[in-house]
Amino acid sequence: MRTVSSDVAVRLYHLGEDGTATTLAYGTLAEALALAARQDEDTQDGLFLQTSNDVVSYLDYIDG
Rank of each mutant, 00 (worst) to 15 (best):
Ala36Leu: 05
Ile62Trp: 01
Asp45Trp: 14
Gly19Ser: 01
Leu24Gln: 05
Ser57Met: 11
Gly64Thr: 14
Glu41His: 06
Glu17Gly: 14
Leu49Phe: 04
Thr20Lys: 11
Val4Met: 12
Leu59Lys: 12
Asp7Thr: 10
Thr20Met: 06
Leu59Asp: 07
Ser52Tyr: 12
Arg2Lys: 14
Leu24Gly: 04
Phe48Pro: 04
Gly19Thr: 03
Leu59Gly: 11
Tyr58Met: 09
Arg11Ser: 04
Gly64Tyr: 11
Phe48Thr: 00
Ala36Thr: 03
Ala36Tyr: 10
His14Gln: 12
Thr22Phe: 09
Leu59Phe: 05
Leu15Asn: 08
Val55Cys: 15
Asp60Tyr: 07
Ser52Trp: 05
Arg38Ala: 15
Val4Pro: 07
Val10Gly: 07
Leu12Ser: 03
Leu33Asn: 04
Gly16Val: 06
Tyr58Asn: 08
Val56Phe: 03
Ala9Asn: 13
Val10Thr: 05
Thr20Phe: 03
Met1His: 10
Gly16Cys: 09
Tyr61Thr: 09
Ala21Cys: 04
Glu31Asn: 06
Ser5Gly: 05
Ser52Glu: 13
Asp63Phe: 15
Ala37Ser: 01
Ser52Ala: 13
Tyr26Ser: 08
Ala34Phe: 07
Val10Asp: 05
Val8Lys: 09
Ala21Phe: 05
Glu31Leu: 02
Val10Pro: 00
Arg2Gly: 10
Tyr13Glu: 09
Ala21Arg: 14
Leu35Phe: 03
Glu17Met: 13
Arg38Val: 07
Arg11Leu: 10
Gln44Thr: 01
Gln44Glu: 00
Gln44Arg: 08
Thr23Pro: 07
Glu17Arg: 14
Phe48Gln: 07
Tyr13Pro: 00
Asn53Gln: 13
Arg11Lys: 12
Val55Glu: 15
His14Tyr: 12
Thr28Tyr: 02
Asp63Tyr: 13
Thr20Gly: 13
Leu47His: 02
Leu24Ile: 06
Leu29Cys: 07
Tyr26Pro: 00
Gln50Val: 02
Asn53Thr: 14
Ile62Met: 03
Tyr61Leu: 13
Asp40Val: 02
Ser5Ile: 03
Asn53Trp: 13
Thr23Phe: 08
Asn53Pro: 02
Asp54Val: 07
Asp7Tyr: 13
Asp45Ser: 15
Leu29His: 08
Asn53Lys: 14
Leu49Tyr: 00
Arg38Lys: 12
Val4Asn: 13
Val10Cys: 06
Asp60Trp: 09
Gly16Asn: 11
Ser57Asp: 09
Ile62Leu: 07
Leu35Lys: 11
Val55Tyr: 10
Ala37Phe: 00
Phe48Gly: 00
His14Gly: 07
Thr3Pro: 09
Thr22Asn: 11
Tyr61Ser: 03
Ser57Phe: 09
